[in-house]
Amino acid sequence: MQSVVAKSAGFASLAALSFLAGCGDKNAEEAADSKPYVLQTDWYAQPETGGFFHASLQGFYSDEGVNLDVKPSNPQMINAQMVASGQADFGITRIEDILMARARGMPLLAVSVYFQRSPLALMLHESNPANSIPELDEHTVMLQLGKPFHLWMERHFDIKLRAVPHDYGIQRFMADESKEFVQQAYLTNEPYQVEKADIDLKLLPLADAGYQTFLCVYTREEFAAEHPEVVKAVVRASARGWQDYLNGDASATNDLLVELNPVLKPDHVEWGRKQIINYHLVDGDYQWDESFYAIDPSRTRTQFELLRDLEMVPADLDWKAAISNSFLPESLN
């Protein structure tokens, strides 16, 4: 049985959110353009990108007058470069990646948030006495070495992890007889496989520990300036897709995700979708002023300051230029 070390504060239900389809100007010349645009996701087809595939499958982009292809990715693709170079028109990633890309000269612009809360977590055996990140000082943790969240944990909690490189599997965790092994996980992925093996676990979500990242839809500045109505249409349709995927009938989209990524099992996809709902990854925590699809400048500044202090971006980087809420419908802005 899974137990979760998480905030007990209540979250607003996604079902309580309202979104009116087609609230923008569908007759705008750019939004009616038949040119096929591309939204490049950041990984293989999976529940974490289900809202975009749902919007495509249900015709929400077409409803907005936009011909948009939603394409799965793979580890060999460098999506930021694809968007920056015009090989794709939209991408999805963490806000830190946008800031670091801009520091490298890529004029990327975040135009909406699709995950207000990060699905990143640390996965522990249920019998592990640690119930918080500070208690993992000097513990062995398998994760992506040197990523901002890794360095943030050590810096924020004044601890030192015995970090080992992530092998992108769960075999070491499942075979660990000492029950002391800890690894990075997604709330929507690895725990499913561990639970299926009848191994008891608990999760420490990084968002609950104070890590302020969020996952956003982005484009390049030039595209946003030249095609603002297309950007607005994609933002509206994507928001509608996420709301309907999480609150409506997701069966056809789940089938599509399995078709696009045969490694997935149907029950895994539905389990992941429910994790997105249960952890309020899309709508966020309203007690922390997180709101559906809107970008919070203060959280962007927090992540910039983290990257600056870690010397991952220059101190004079204009972080405000990396985000814009101007493409959101008024009801979401």
Results as ranks from 00 to 15, higher is better:
167 D>H: 11
169 G>C: 07
185 A>K: 03
187 L>F: 01
136 L>Q: 05
167 D>I: 11
222 E>K: 11
205 P>Y: 01
202 K>E: 00
136 L>V: 01
242 W>H: 03
151 L>Q: 09
257 L>Y: 03
155 R>I: 03
212 Q>N: 14
174 M>T: 12
152 W>D: 02
237 A>V: 07
208 D>A: 03
188 T>H: 02
206 L>R: 02
225 A>I: 00
168 Y>G: 12
218 Y>N: 05
255 D>R: 12
231 V>P: 04
199 I>K: 06
143 L>A: 10
165 P>I: 08
212 Q>Y: 12
217 V>H: 13
185 A>F: 02
156 H>M: 10
212 Q>L: 13
161 L>H: 00
230 V>I: 12
198 D>F: 12
184 Q>H: 13
170 I>S: 08
252 A>P: 01
164 V>G: 02
127 S>P: 04
215 L>N: 13
173 F>P: 06
169 G>T: 12
230 V>E: 06
130 A>M: 04
198 D>M: 13
159 I>R: 02
148 P>Y: 01
161 L>P: 05
138 E>D: 14
252 A>R: 08
247 N>R: 11
180 E>A: 14
253 T>C: 11
230 V>S: 00
178 S>D: 10
166 H>N: 15
192 Y>Q: 04
143 L>F: 08
178 S>M: 02
144 Q>S: 15
245 Y>Q: 08
163 A>P: 01
144 Q>C: 11
181 F>I: 07
167 D>S: 10
189 N>S: 15
141 V>T: 04
194 V>P: 01
163 A>S: 10
193 Q>G: 14
172 R>D: 11
197 A>R: 13
238 S>I: 01
261 N>V: 05
155 R>F: 07
250 A>Q: 07
151 L>N: 08
134 P>Q: 04
149 F>H: 14
186 Y>C: 13
128 N>D: 07
130 A>N: 01
202 K>M: 00
152 W>A: 02
230 V>Q: 00
201 L>C: 10
139 H>P: 03
194 V>T: 05
202 K>C: 00
214 F>W: 04
232 K>I: 02
177 E>W: 07
245 Y>F: 15
246 L>V: 06
180 E>G: 11
159 I>G: 06
217 V>M: 15
253 T>K: 04
264 L>G: 00
223 F>E: 01
211 Y>F: 13
142 M>R: 13
172 R>Y: 08
138 E>K: 15
149 F>L: 12
225 A>C: 06
223 F>N: 04
224 A>N: 02
145 L>V: 13
247 N>I: 09
162 R>V: 11
168 Y>N: 13
261 N>L: 08
168 Y>Q: 14
227 H>P: 09
246 L>R: 00
252 A>E: 13
155 R>Q: 14
186 Y>I: 09
265 K>P: 05
169 G>F: 07
200 D>S: 15
